[in-house]
Amino acid sequence: MYFELRNISVRYDKVRALDDVSLVLERGEIVALIGANGAGKTSTLRAITGLARPTAGEIWFNGQRIDKLDPAAIVGLGISMVPEGRHVYPFMSVKDNLLMGAYLRKDKKGIEQDLQKSFARFPRLKERLRQQAGSLSGGEQQMVVISRALMARPQLILLDEPSLGLAPMVVRDIARAIVEINREEGISVILVEQNSRMALKISNRAYALETGRIALTGNSADLLNDDHIRKLYLGLARL
């Protein structure tokens, strides 16, 4: 298996955020992780990137166990994360934000090429290159953080609620970009969303989390038409 969570648990002091969560991903897949607020979606991603230490279970990537590694080593292996809430570096230029994404890389030429790629994908970033990232609109900031994560040349990208708080039109742009990244660059994606409809539309498979446990899993297309899922996860969704 390309990427796998095996029976992962995460706790914060007394709160149990994840309980025995297992998840798999094949190379090139987009896997959606949906669930209500507080279900444990962010905790799952934090466990993968090493920001949170699982109390039980294993995480495997490309034949290597990674759950004991520190975040820098995990980035180095090719896993990048776009955290929830558009965490740009607010007082840095857009360009410096993007360069931070390439922190571990030494290939100047490749970095320059990837900058150009980001501008091709999001032309607005080029216009705003010297501007402080904190002064951009929400959609533009989301473009910055996605591009910043891509600057590390990841093989697997984790996106935590990229559509949160964005206008429907912008959400469509971001969704399109995610599909493009996956198809054109061959980057695998774990997409965390409360906007379940969008996530199910663009993903191959999905997992639904409920209070720290996997409640159900299946092909996204099937889930999109499933009555139970509709009631539980799509009722209040936007778009």
């Binding site: 990137t49 920001l51 975040p71 980035v75 570096y89 840095m92 931070m100 910043r148 590390a152």
Partner: peptide
């Protein structure tokens, strides 16, 4: 740049490697 990054957002800076 890394120093500035750390000053602005510690957690994200971990994620940059």
């Amino acid at each position: 740049r890394a120093l500035r990054a750390l000053a602005q957002d510690r957690e994200v800076t971990y994620l940059m490697g």
